[in-house]
């Protein structure tokens, strides 16, 4: 279960971003819709523990994310939260399988080759296990990024504009994939997007208001 209360973040004193409270039950899939400038990415980074909020609380299951810091937060993020970014990033010196195993190792989980291989199999990437990540197509890279977000069976999966670079067909395929895989690990899925094509796909939606300059 993911809940937030009075979440705010300010880049400087003048401009404070305020976010609506979220109440997402375990296993629910949510869409966070907003235009650019609505602080979508900021919210996602706050939820993902990449950014510390100026005010408010974030709870994931029994853990108060805002109370964690330093290596404890890093470890929690690595183990419990999977993030898929708009652009897929990798450690370019490692091939596909090693990128997944690295995600386990950095999270402090014993690397499990079988789990990594199964996941790649499910995402139709078995034949790419030993490929350098740079050689993959954009679609394949996106799928590997999803596999990496899922490898540690996280409680929360965050996706930042996962479909913005894709056509209708592929966009639908990626969303289906995310939902399917989130169900497989019983994770809460939160997709942040301005892509209206996804609107009808999700029952649960939160609209992010364009942010006003607050004093």
């Amino acid at each position: 279960m993911l809940t937030t209360a009075d979440l705010s973040y300010s880049y400087d004193r003048k401009r404070v971003l305020r976010f609506p409270d979220l109440h997402c039950q375990t296993g629910e899939h949510w869409l966070l819709l907003g235009q650019s400038g609505s602080g979508k990415t900021t919210l996602l980074h706050l939820l993902g523990g990449l950014l510390t909020p100026t005010g408010g609380r974030i709870r994931l299951n029994d853990t108060d994310l805002t109370a964690l810091s330093g290596p404890a937060l890093d470890r929690f993020r690595g183990q419990r939260i999977g993030i898929v970014f708009q652009r897929a990033h990798f450690v370019p010196s490692l091939h596909v399988l090693d990128n997944l195993l690295l995600a386990q190792q950095l999270a402090g989980i014993t690397p499990d080759r079988t789990r990594a291989a199964e996941l790649l199999e499910r995402l139709d990437l078995s034949h790419k296990q030993q490929s350098p990540v740079q050689r993959l197509s954009v679609g394949e890279q996106q799928r590997v990024a999803i596999a990496r977000a899922l490898i540690n069976k996280p409680a929360l999966i965050l996706a930042d504009e996962p479909t913005s670079a894709l056509d209708d067909d592929n966009s639908l395929r990626v969303v289906n994939l995310l939902e399917e895989q989130a169900r497989a690990v019983e994770a809460t899925l939160l997709i942040v997007t301005h892509d209206n094509r996804l609107k009808d796909h999700f029952e649960r939606r939160v609209a992010l208001e364009p942010q006003k300059t607050a004093q």
């Binding site: 690595g78 990033h89 990798f90 450690v91």
Partner: peptide, 16 residues
């Protein structure tokens, strides 16, 4: 920088 930021996302601490 992306690779290093990504490693932090995956759970690596600053000291790592």
């Amino acid at each position: 920088r992306y690779e290093l930021a990504l490693m932090r996302v995956m759970g690596a601490s600053r000291s790592r």
